[in-house]
C-alpha cells in the first residue's frame, strides 16, 4: 500500500506520498554524494571531507580548495545534475502524455531540433554571440514540437503517430545538421561537434544561471499540473469525461516538456537517453502517479548525469569522455530492451 500523509486545513487538502518523498530524498542524497565525489576528482584531487568543508565555506588545509571547489568544479557538477533533471522531467511528461514508455525528447526529435538550430548558429552564422545559442536551441525545439503537434494530432491524439512522426522529424533535423557539419568551416564544426555530443565540460556559473529559471518555471508548472497529467494518462476519452480540458492541458504540458528539454540541450548539448531512462527508474521506485513520479524522475535524471560525468572523467583518465557518450552507451541498450519488452507484450 502506498502510504500517504494528508495536510488538511479548512478548504485546503494536499496529499503527500510518503514513499515517493523517501525515494526522492534518497535519490537527492545519492546525487549529493555523487556531486561531492565529482568535485573531488581531477588533476588536483581533493578528499571528500575537504570538498564538503570547502562547499560549506569552512577552513581546509589548503586555501586553494575553496576556489577549486566552488568556482572551478562545482558549477560543472551542478549543471550535470540540472541538465539530467530537466531531461528526465521532459521525458516523464512526454511518456505520460503519449501513454508510451518509449517516448522521450530525443526519440520524438525535440533534441534534434534544438541541435539543428544551435549548429546552424554555430556553423552558418559564427558572428552571432554564443549567448544566443541557448535561445536558438529553444526555438528549434519548440519548432519541432509545434510541427509534431500539427502533424500528429488530427482531431484526436494517436500516441503511435506522434512517435513515428517525431522519429521522422528527428531524422530530417539530424540530416540537416549533418549537412551543416559537412560544409561548415573546420573551427566552427569542431565547436558544433563538441556541443552535439552532450558534454558539461568547462561549464561554469555563467551557464548554470540561465538554466535555472527554465527548470524552476517549467519544472514547477509541470508539477502543478501533475493531477491533470494523471488524468490524461487514462486516455483522452476518460480524461475528457472526468472534466479535463484535454487540448489545453496537453498543450501546456507539452510546452513544459519542450521547454525543459530545450533548456537542457541548450546548456549541455544532446545528452542522450536520460529522458528515456530516468522516468523508468522513477516509475519502478514510486509508481505511475505523477505527483511522486515527476520529482523522482528529476532526481534520478540528475543523479544519472552526475554519475555519467563522474565515470567519464575517472574511467578513462587522463582522457575525458563526454557524459553524453556514457549515458548513450547505457541508454541505447536500455532502449532496445524496452522495445523488446513492448514487442513481447503485444
Amino acid at each position: 500500500m502506498r502510504r500517504r500523509a494528508v495536510l488538511r486545513r479548512g478548504g485546503l487538502s494536499l496529499p503527500l506520498d510518503l514513499r515517493a518523498a523517501a525515494v526522492v530524498a534518497g535519490l537527492l542524497g545519492a546525487s549529493l554524494v555523487g556531486i561531492v565525489l565529482h568535485v573531488g576528482v581531477g588533476e588536483y584531487p581533493i578528499s571528500p571531507p575537504d570538498v564538503v568543508r570547502a562547499l560549506l565555506g569552512l577552513s581546509t588545509g589548503d586555501e586553494n580548495y575553496y576556489f577549486i571547489v566552488n568556482v572551478l568544479r562545482l558549477p560543472r557538477a551542478l549543471v550535470a545534475f540540472l541538465v539530467g533533471a530537466a531531461l528526465a522531467l521532459s521525458g516523464a511528461i512526454l511518456q505520460g502524455l503519449t501513454r508510451n514508455p518509449l517516448a522521450a525528447p530525443e526519440i520524438v526529435g525535440i533534441n534534434a531540433g534544438a541541435g539543428l538550430a544551435a549548429v546552424t548558429l554555430i556553423v552558418a552564422l559564427p558572428s552571432v554571440p554564443a549567448a544566443l545559442i541557448p535561445p536558438a536551441a529553444f526555438v528549434g525545439a519548440v519548432a519541432v514540437a509545434a510541427t509534431l503537434y500539427l502533424l500528429a494530432w488530427r482531431g484526436e491524439s494517436s500516441p503511435i503517430r506522434l512517435i513515428l512522426i517525431g522519429v521522422g522529424i528527428g531524422a530530417v533535423a539530424t540530416a540537416l545538421t549533418t549537412i551543416m557539419i559537412t560544409y561548415g568551416e573546420i573551427e566552427q564544426v569542431s565547436q558544433a561537434l563538441v556541443w552535439l555530443t552532450g558534454s558539461v565540460y568547462g561549464r561554469s556559473w555563467e551557464e548554470l544561471w540561465p538554466l535555472l529559471p527554465w527548470l524552476a518555471l517549467f519544472g514547477s508548472l509541470a508539477l502543478l499540473r501533475a493531477r491533470h497529467l494523471n488524468a490524461l494518462t487514462l486516455g483522452d476519452e476518460v480524461a475528457a469525461g472526468l472534466g479535463v480540458g484535454v487540448e489545453r492541458e496537453r498543450g501546456l504540458l507539452l510546452l513544459c516538456s519542450v521547454a525543459l528539454a530545450a533548456a537542457a540541450v541548450a546548456t549541455a548539448g544532446t545528452v542522450g537517453f536520460v529522458g528515456l531512462m530516468a522516468p523508468h527508474i522513477a516509475r519502478r521506485l514510486v509508481g505511475p502517479s505523477h505527483g511522486g513520479l515527476l520529482p523522482a524522475a528529476a532526481a534520478s535524471g540528475g543523479m544519472l548525469v552526475v554519475a555519467a560525468d563522474l565515470v567519464g572523467r575517472v574511467a578513462f583518465s587522463p582522457l575525458e569522455m563526454p557524459c553524453g557518450i556514457i549515458t548513450s552507451a547505457v541508454g541505447a541498450p536500455f532502449f532496445i530492451y524496452l522495445l523488446y519488452r513492448s514487442a513481447d507484450a503485444k
Binding site: 505520460g96 476518460v238 509508481g287
Partner: peptide, 23 residues
Amino acid sequence: ILPQSPEAPEGLTVRELAAQGRY
C-alpha cells in the same frame, strides 16, 4: 462516462484509479 475497454498506465493500483474519479 466509461469508454469501451479503457487502458490504465502500467503499475497503477485500483485505489489510484478510483481516486482519479475525484478529479
